[in-house]
Write a protein that binds this DNA or RNA. Structure first.
Lengths: 221, 221
DNA sequence: TTAATAGTGTCTGTTAGACAGTATGGG
DNA sequence: CCCATACTGTCTAACAGACACTATTAA
């Protein structure tokens, strides 16, 4: 049997000031010791139930973040991507609200804007690019961007998230029609957004059944 | 380092009489020797450039089919899916025209309709279901179904493929507008579909630049 | 000519976007 | 009151689907 190294990597994304950021971690061992890279690690056959469990474990151990929205991205493989030998990395995308990362406040985790030129070890740049492209693509026709916000949020906030991801303004009336069509939100009564000198916006949250399951539109935004 | 078995599996799909069929191969070794399963095998670190190469190699060795449309589906993993131990299978979907399979005429390959109840070893049923769901979903907004036809085909043929995959009739005028919008086809001049006592249909083929690259619609069919 | 299917012009209903109006908070 | 932003009603433009009409072949 040919020896193949089997790892998972996590592209942990969040929005900071309307810009997509990815979590990078200073590597604590060779190869690339001390270099910022995606949180990742070997699959532990004795403890991990599957690759997804491994990704959740790695994220918890390395960043202190627990149970984010997580979906499999793709698997990257080949003899050259890791100097230790022929390797497979099952990559996952995790989406969290900015606050989750700030609360975890892990000292070795640095957020980097994905629009900047990133210089990353292994093929991590390609993995990040794939994750970002997938997120932006799915934002056109799904509820995925909701996971970049907290437990409750207003429609104007959500629209700004979609607009940041799609990098284009969205018609307010159409946006609201589409959110109604997706029928994934329920209003949180009585609670309104605090803040400015203006009418406060209604708060919403994902219906429980869609907390882990995407909602799709027949026709995109 | 924990020992993880690293394999690839291929869901080779084709349309036979407007029904999606998957290629199954009688296994020639344990486990499940003699049982029909997806074509698959171990990654060979010395010869495979990456997992995709492994999938192409496996498909060529086991079915005689070379260079089909191939895309990564997902990776399946866990301690229980293979009796030999904790395993990872990087699954690929291959699409080919029915004739390609008939010409290969591999004696151990049997096509099975995916709508029938399939009893498959490992987690191959789940892999097939995932591949079929992905294909049907992408058929709503992409050129993917083209790869289930040969090098050239007519628009009525292509529409029947879309209708078979989506399991619903499509408006002819809209369908043609959408194909024009995708702008992935070029007419094959002078050549017409032979056959019935009626006006023959114009033949088209994928433009060279889209032979291996999907074309997407802004808004689905 | 008829039958059968290919391909198109056009009308209509549906949907998306523009715009302007009302609603509701703070100052 | 004013301003700012949330929300909504409604008009218009764009698009999708229905339908009918023409085109082209074989018998």
């Amino acid at each position: 049997m040919d020896q193949v190294i089997c790892t998972v990597d996590v592209v942990l994304l969040t929005l900071k000031e309307q810009r997509l950021n990815v979590a990078l971690l200073k590597r604590d061992r060779e190869p690339y010791k001390g270099v910022a890279a995606l949180p990742g690690g070997f699959i532990h056959a004795e403890e991990d139930g599957d690759a997804r469990d491994a990704a959740l474990r790695v994220l918890r151990e390395k960043t202190g973040i627990d149970a984010p929205y997580l979906e499999q991205l793709a698997t990257f493989s080949g003899p050259a991507r890791d100097p230790r030998g022929w390797s497979v990395s099952i990559a996952y995308t995790a989406l969290v609200h900015d606050e989750v990362i700030e609360k975890a406040a892990h000292p070795d985790v640095k957020m980097a804007c994905v629009d900047r030129k990133l210089s990353l070890p292994f093929d991590h740049k390609a993995i990040v690019d794939t994750a970002v492209a997938r997120l932006r693509s799915k934002s056109q026709y799904s509820s995925l961007p909701c996971y970049l916000l907290g437990a409750s949020f207003t429609l104007p906030q959500l629209q700004r998230v979609y607009e940041a991801l799609l990098a284009e303004p969205i018609n307010k009336v159409s946006f609201r029609r589409k959110m109604t069509e997706m029928a994934m939100l329920e209003s949180v009564d009585g609670e309104m957004e605090a803040g400015g000198a203006h009418r406060p916006a209604q708060l919403y949250r994902l219906k429980p059944e869609y907390r882990d399951q995407l909602r799709l539109l027949e026709r995109g935004l």
